[in-house]
Design a protein around this nucleic acid. Structure first.
Length: 198
DNA sequence: CCCTGATTCGC
DNA sequence: GCGAATCAGG
């Protein structure tokens, strides 16, 4: 397969949308994610706004290899811009807090004598997410605490005080503590806080 | 172990 | 220019 205009265009589009290289490769077909990444670099559109990976490591090559490269590398580079240099960037805050963290079902610890706090956000989880969870819990591996590993979902199910307690144990993804379904419950997009008459 | 992107270098 | 191999991080 070669990089036709169409394919490059799709690559640019998807990359711009934040799709991963592997996803793009899958979509394009006939290429590996390495090919996609290589192309992305050649196109010069590498760094997307911080894709959480090796930005730092990228900046420090040459642990070995490449012996001689006596580049004179003089860089006068008198880049004088006549006007309009200042980039209007008052918007510095990258965290529009589109998500609301909801605590996992832990044992209720309520201060004695206190009325129940209104629990502003710990309720009203989207029906889809809940359905997904009930569905997923059928497939759950029901691991015990000691069976949990780095890549098993640590979502607790049941009452810790009884035998009927276990952890989901399904595969987690990319450093998250929970499986896909439980991540969906733990991190609610604020948009899902739709008004639901109670 | 799964994933991510980055870099190198023979082709 | 291409991309597999490798690296580095989550």
């Amino acid at each position: 397969m070669s990089w036709t205009d169409e394919r490059v265009e799709l690559l640019k589009k998807m990359w711009g949308e934040g799709q991963s290289a592997s996803q793009i490769a899958k979509e394009l077909g006939g290429v590996t994610r390495n090919a996609v990444i290589g192309k992305v670099h050649r196109l010069g559109l590498s760094n997307r706004a911080g894709t959480g990976t090796t930005a730092a490591a990228a900046a420090k090559p040459e642990p070995k290899a490449k012996p001689a490269a006596p580049k004179v590398e003089a860089k006068p580079k008198a880049e004088a811009k006549p006007k309009a240099e200042a980039k209007p960037k008052p918007q510095e805050e990258p965290e529009p807090e589109t998500r609301v963290a909801v605590m996992p079902p832990r044992a209720k610890i309520i201060p004695a004598g206190q009325p129940l706090p209104p629990q502003p956000s710990a309720n009203e989880i989207s029906p889809e997410a809940l359905a997904k969870v009930s569905e997923i819990e059928k497939k759950a591996k029901r691991l015990s605490l000691m069976e949990l590993t780095e890549r098993t979902c640590k979502w607790p199910v049941g009452d810790p005080a009884t035998d009927d307690f276990w952890f989901c144990g399904l595969p987690v993804q990319a450093g998250k503590p929970y499986c896909e379904a439980h991540v969906g419950v733990a991190f609610q997009p604020m948009s899902s806080r739709r008004d639901r008459r109670r």
